[in-house]
Design a protein around this nucleic acid. Structure first.
Length: 417
RNA sequence: GUGGCUAUAGCUCAGUCGGUAGAGCGCUGGAUUGUGGUUCCAGAUGUCACGGGUUCAAAUCCCGUUAGCCACCCCA
């Protein structure tokens, strides 16, 4: 039997309803914040991600789906979407358009990692980018918006973490200092951290081993080494968040895996996601466009929500995913009533009433099915009703049944549609 | 890429010391000529993940493969 390949999955009804709800909610919020949708290709030239995400990152060095095309060019399934959006921004000269470019996207990404809870090889992200401003107020608005999406999805109990990772002026000096200090204390750290001290010094700061914490406390904090541009930028972001009463934790140890981040970075975590507890991550990337060949300075900030994880959290938050998937189940009794039912169903559906027909079986069977399908009403169309030009409408919750005219039926069902 | 656990009906799972397959739910039909949910009766469904080995005999023991889950690395 052929099965879905490792790390991919089918999303079936009724689960797909949660996905649709999440996406509709996100689109609604994006619209309110005046974002437009961008749809970029699902694969790109490999060089785009190598240059955009960073050659040395795990994503690029070992997690990409890359292949050689027939003409010899190297192509890659997108592992994230920011690089593509910036590529499109440059390619189509969106910097020439008036105002900020506020773009959002929803779609699948691909990384060849070992699957586990909330981590798949094909996964979906809901993300957005604002390009064309360095203002810290934009950072705050982006964060505010992403929280709005989460709460409008019915999610609570999430936790916002923010940090500033500096810029090309202040980060190198801090990194040098950190490396130096790490050499001194390396012996007191866990095995992983001794390795990280050389390969990925920032990652040491995020180590979760309890025994390492006292030592990590003594390491320098990036926030104490921000330059005269980055420091007020971060202060203003915080001020704007404070103004709106947004709760957050400043975590100088928050590191992001992608090379292009600078200044503001943020993350939202939610319990019950196991080790993969991060629902979304984002940050500012003022140098990315230039590194992808832009001739104009195009600072940007963006985020991406792990939709798979968000859906998981939303499902837990609201167990009752059901709720009237079907308005009317039509039970025709006989050949002529079935012909009539087909026409009636069409008419009702044109008014967005959710209708299903019992094409086969006896009335008893139809009612059983109506019950299983959670139909609000069953409409019985028999020879008797046909002759009298009426219907028998049965309320499946109360069990009450009444004979109503065709006009009354429309009145009853179109209400609220 | 590394480690641990797991794989039996559509789903959740039981299966003893190795003796040839079970339950609940769901599904189908009936008790009921055109009235569901509750109840009762009956029925169907299995490559015991796959491949090999040990044995008179393997769902059960051993090896391998694949897949899933969990964790690590890393990350959304």
């Amino acid at each position: 039997m052929i099965k879905a390949v490792k790390g991919t999955r089918d999303i079936l009804p009724p689960d797909s309803r949660v996905w649709n709800r999440v996406e509709e909610t996100a689109r609604r919020v994006f619209a309110a914040y005046h974002y437009g949708e961008i749809r970029t290709p699902i694969f790109e030239e490999t060089a785009l991600f190598a240059r955009g995400v960073g050659e040395e990152t795990d994503i690029v060095s070992k997690e990409m789906y890359t292949w050689e095309d027939r003409d010899g060019s190297s192509l890659t399934l997108r592992p994230e979407n920011t690089a593509s959006v910036i590529r499109a921004y440059i390619e189509h000269r969106l910097d020439q358009r008036p105002g900020l470019q506020k773009l959002y996207y929803i779609g699948p990404m691909f990384r060849r990692e070992r699957p586990q809870k909330g981590r798949y090889r094909q996964f979906s992200q809901i993300g957005a980018e604002v390009i064309g401003s360095e203002s810290p107020a934009v950072d705050a608005e982006v964060i505010e918006m992403v929280l709005e999406i989460l709460s409008q999805c019915g999610l609570s109990g999430f936790h916002l973490v923010i940090n500033s990772v500096g810029c090309k002026n202040c980060r190198p000096a801090f990194l040098a200092l950190l490396r130096e200090r790490l050499q001194d204390v390396k012996g007191q750290l866990c095995g992983d951290c001794q390795r990280r001290a050389d390969t990925n010094p920032l990652r040491v700061l995020d180590c979760k081993v309890p025994q390492d914490q006292p030592v990590i406390e003594t390491l320098p904090s990036i926030l104490d080494h921000l330059c005269e541009v980055c420091k007020p930028h971060f202060a203003t972001v915080r001020q704007f968040l404070d103004d709106r009463g947004i709760q957050y934790e400043v975590r100088p140890r928050l590191v992001r895996g992608l090379d292009y981040y600078m200044r503001t970075t943020f993350e939202v975590v939610h319990g019950s996601l196991g080790a993969q507890n991060s629902v979304l991550g984002g940050g500012r990337y003022d140098g990315l466009a230039e590194s992808l060949g832009s001739r104009v300075h195009s600072p940007g900030i963006g985020f991406s929500i792990g939709e798979d994880r968000l859906v998981m959290s939303v499902e837990e938050a609201s167990q009752n995913a059901s709720g009237g998937a079907l308005d009317v189940f039509i039970a025709p009794l006989g050949a002529e009533p079935l012909r009539h039912a087909a026409g009636l169903a069409h008419e009702l559906r044109r008014h967005n009433v959710r209708v299903e027909i019992a094409f086969e079986g006896k009335l008893k069977r139809a009612l059983e099915l109506a019950n299983k399908l959670n139909a609000r009403y069953t409409l019985i169309v028999g020879e008797t009703e046909m002759a009298a030009g009426v219907y028998a409408l049965k309320n499946m919750t109360s069990g009450e049944q009444e004979t109503i005219s065709r006009e009354q039926l429309a009145e009853r069902l179109y209400a609220g549609k």
